[in-house]
């Protein structure tokens, strides 16, 4: 099961799904409030904390009657996976956490990389981009003229990102502190991080590895926060290797 993080939707997995789907059943979804999720399912209270999103992950497992899944969470979805796996460990065979951060804000000796003021700045940034949100994203011409359905997907999906919902998700994401939940993880866990990531720096990856018993950390030679886009082959290879290990 692949879970996207804050800012995009399941299109994030586009480049690695073909490789994983060769011999695995892949479950993709958009978090409520993102992508093409049903706006009627939105509940500002439920989705004000990551636990609401974690509950949704468990609901998907139940609804699809999935056998224990390998949950691949990107960015904030990695902590959503940690919460879900701690709540109902039997539903999870393993966790793969891509560029995870258990806490984005510095706290004492812990370095998350951001201050509260930085996060407020981000929320402002979101606001200023919502003014022209649909106008900006709708006429985007895709680099895939031979696959026009991609353009339609993206345009529709991005247009539907409701500013109010995204703002709630941003707060739930960047104000979360899940450090205490790491120790409770009881399933095999892989951590994938990038060599240069402004959002989840290497120290944060190490912190996660130290606090999840038996976890393994792989650093990809990739820049940015989304190795599944910037280094899809290496990301898919690392995931496939992990899937073999936990099979």
């Amino acid at each position: 099961m692949l879970a996207h993080g804050f800012g995009c939707d399941q299109n994030m997995w586009r480049r690695i799904v073909p490789s994983l789907a060769v011999d695995h059943r892949v479950v993709l979804f958009d978090h409520v409030g993102s992508g093409r999720s049903d706006p009627a399912a939105w509940d500002a209270d439920r989705y004000a904390s990551l636990s609401g999103y974690a509950e949704d992950v468990l609901e998907i497992c139940r609804e699809l009657a999935l056998p224990p899944v390998t949950f691949v969470g990107h960015s904030v979805a990695s902590m959503i996976g940690v919460l879900a796996a701690n709540r109902e460990p039997d539903r999870f065979a393993a966790l793969a956490l891509i560029t995870p951060s258990p806490c984005y804000i510095d706290d004492g000796t812990y370095r998350g990389g951001f201050s509260r003021a930085d996060i407020d700045e981000l929320l402002e940034s979101l606001d200023s981009n919502y003014l022209g949100w649909s106008a900006t994203m709708a006429p985007v011409i895709m680099g895939n003229p031979d696959r026009p359905e991609l353009g339609e997907d993206l345009t529709n999906s991005f247009c539907r990102t409701d500013p109010a919902m995204a703002s709630v998700f941003a707060r739930a994401t960047f104000l979360s502190d899940n450090r205490a939940d790491l120790a409770a993880v009881s399933v095999p866990t892989l951590i994938l991080q990038c060599s240069h990531d402004a959002i989840a720096p290497p120290e944060v990856g190490s912190y996660v590895r130290q606090h999840i018993r038996g976890s393994r950390l792989v650093t990809l030679a990739a820049t940015g926060h989304c190795p599944q886009l910037s280094a899809p082959e290496a990301t898919a290879a690392a995931l496939r290797e992990f899937l073999e290990e936990v099979r």
Partner: peptide, 12 residues
Amino acid sequence: VGGKIYYETHYA
């Protein structure tokens, strides 16, 4: 910094 997060999560 806020712009950087926006860049990494949306723009890139």
